[in-house]
Computed example of a mutant assay.
Amino acid sequence: MAFTILIVFSAVFFFFYKIKHWRSKAPVEKRWLQTKANMALGSFLVAFGLNLLVYTRGTIDIVIGSIFTLLGLANVILGYKAYRHYLPQVIAEAEQATKNA
């Protein structure tokens, strides 16, 4: 049940950040929001993969669950690195936008 809740929340956050990404005008902020969406997608894959591993019905569930978990972990880790990379740039872009406004 806990994995199901995490799957739903991850999917909701993914769509939330994707919509914010599409609506954003600032280029660096768009990349920053994309990394947040990638992390949410990664957490979705991890939760879905762990759900398959915990509630296995056969060998295919174990293989697919392992693949989803590994891909999700890669998405979360690389997304977090990109998030940290873009964060100072987003702050500088926001400060520049407030100065110009």
Rank of each mutant, 00 (worst) to 15 (best):
M1T: 10
F3A: 00
F3K: 00
I5R: 07
L6R: 05
I7Y: 01
I7H: 01
F9M: 12
S10Y: 01
H21E: 11
H21G: 02
W22S: 04
W22L: 07
R23G: 05
S24Q: 14
K25C: 10
P27S: 07
R31A: 08
L33C: 05
Q34D: 03
K36M: 11
A37G: 03
N38P: 04
M39I: 10
M39R: 11
A40V: 04
L41C: 09
L41Q: 11
G42V: 06
S43L: 14
F44M: 05
L45E: 01
V46L: 04
A47W: 08
A47Q: 08
G49A: 02
L50Y: 06
L53A: 03
Y55Q: 14
Y55M: 13
R57S: 13
D61R: 07
D61L: 03
I62C: 03
I62E: 03
V63L: 10
I64Q: 02
I67N: 00
I67D: 00
L73I: 10
L73H: 02
A74H: 07
N75C: 09
N75L: 14
V76E: 00
V76I: 12
L78M: 10
L78N: 07
G79R: 12
G79H: 08
G79I: 08
K81Q: 12
R84M: 13
H85Q: 09
H85L: 08
H85F: 14
L87C: 03
V90C: 05
A92C: 02
E93F: 02
E93T: 05
E95I: 12
E95Y: 14
E95M: 10
T98M: 11
T98Q: 12
N100R: 15
